[in-house]
């Protein structure tokens, strides 16, 4: 069975052909027609904070609602979250691998990879059986950026591989967005650096879509009603990015037990998230 397309193939994306060293062949698994869709790369650090992951997931969801395909690298952390956001929203996603499309790397993403095979597309410039070799990964990053009109870097540490993707995107003349973070946050150092160097700070997710000339679909979610205490806590979290229960307790003068009770409710309502004891707005 022939499971690759080559450079002369009709379906070979023109965006990819434009880059300086386009792959000769693209091996694939899944629905190859997806490759013709308008796509945006969503990449980021493997060691992501939950904030980063929830943003990546949200970007994935939003893009899919406007029928834009999400391209990423199937790594753990941000990449997985972006893929998952797209799949959960019923959209399309492309995973670009640094090994053969028959190999699952990292192994813990087996379930996610199987889902992408079924509902999306997995591609690689390496033939089946190629093991995941470390120098393949920077190389495959040029394909991620090459396939896409724009690339979003959600979270990147000082030396994250996603900075390479951003560099490729810039040199290919594509848009680079970076999600700004606290300047004290280690996991946002790389993205903040990109902004300093000229990347577009991503303030509103819809901007990515608008910049493509597409009008984003409005969120139909009904506004959530909050009680007085809930509102008080929620407003404080909104004001102060990441907080702990003790921070809230000091500010609102409520007892930790009461705050904890309310936090779960806010979390189930989908307004906040918590991770490693820190609470933040989604």
């Amino acid at each position: 069975m022939k499971n690759y397309i080559d450079k002369n193939s009709e379906i070979y994306p023109y965006l990819l052909k434009e880059i300086s060293s386009p792959p000769e062949r693209l091996y694939y698994d899944g629905d190859i027609s997806i490759i013709e869709n308008t796509a945006i790369g969503v990449v980021g650090s493997r060691k992501a904070s939950k904030y980063g992951e929830s943003i990546a997931k949200k970007i994935g969801e939003k893009l899919c609602k406007s029928e834009i395909t999400v391209v990423s690298g199937l790594a753990i952390g941000i990449d997985s979250a972006a893929h998952l956001g797209a799949l959960d929203a019923g959209g399309k996603t492309i995973a670009v691998l640094g090994c053969g499309t028959d190999i699952c790397y990292p192994a813990q993403n087996r379930r996610l990879m199987d889902r992408i095979r079924k509902e999306g597309l997995v591609i690689s410039e390496y033939p089946d059986g190629t093991p995941p070799i470390s120098y393949h990964f920077p190389q495959r990053n040029r394909i991620i950026s090459g396939l896409c009109e724009s690339t979003v870097v959600v979270e990147a540490g000082r030396k994250s591989g996603s900075l390479i993707t951003a560099e490729f995107a810039a040199s290919q003349g594509r848009n680079v967005y970076a999600v700004p973070g606290n300047i004290t946050s280690f996991s946002s150092f790389g993205t903040n650096m990109l902004i300093r160097d000229g990347a577009t700070p991503l303030i509103v997710i819809d901007d990515i879509i608008r910049d493509l000339g597409i009008e984003p679909k409005a969120d139909e979610a009904a506004p959530v009603k909050l009680g007085a205490d809930e509102d008080k806590i929620f407003k404080f979290i909104c004001r102060s990015s990441e907080v702990t229960v003790d921070d809230i307790s000091r500010e609102t003068m409520m007892s930790p037990e009461k705050i904890n009770g309310i936090l779960t409710i806010l979390e189930i309502k989908g307004l906040i998230e918590s991770s490693l004891g820190k609470i933040f707005v989604v």
Binding site: V245, E257, K258, N260, G261, L263, T264
Partner: peptide, 9 residues
């Protein structure tokens, strides 16, 4: 409810 809600934390 609030007991459960706190316990979940």
């Amino acid at each position: 409810l609030m007991d459960l809600s706190e316990a979940i934390r």
